[in-house]
Amino acid sequence: MGDRVQHKKPSMSAEAREWLEQETDAQERRYAGIVAEQEALTPDREQWYAQFLEIVSTRGFNVTGDQRRVIPEDELPTRPDRDDAMNVVW
């Protein structure tokens, strides 16, 4: 195995370290904002999921490309009794 340029990198400068810390903090706030925003969408999402199950059981589910399979009623999933069931941001 040969060496790579990346392995020769000088360690992070103090300036870069500070930049990274600031941006990491900002990203944590951004993440928290996204989680809150997405939680607020839950009522819409419940409808979207219901519409989706309606579509895959009538017009069909895209197996690959444009190939569709109509999902029989007894194969349709049901919402599990679990705290993270409506999570979309992980």
């Binding site: 999921y49 589910f61 895209n62 690959t64 349709l76 999933p77 599990p80 679990r82 069931a85 409506m86």
Partner: peptide
Amino acid sequence: NYFHFNPWTNP
């Protein structure tokens, strides 16, 4: 592409 139709699965 892993495709499926269960909206409630977790990672």
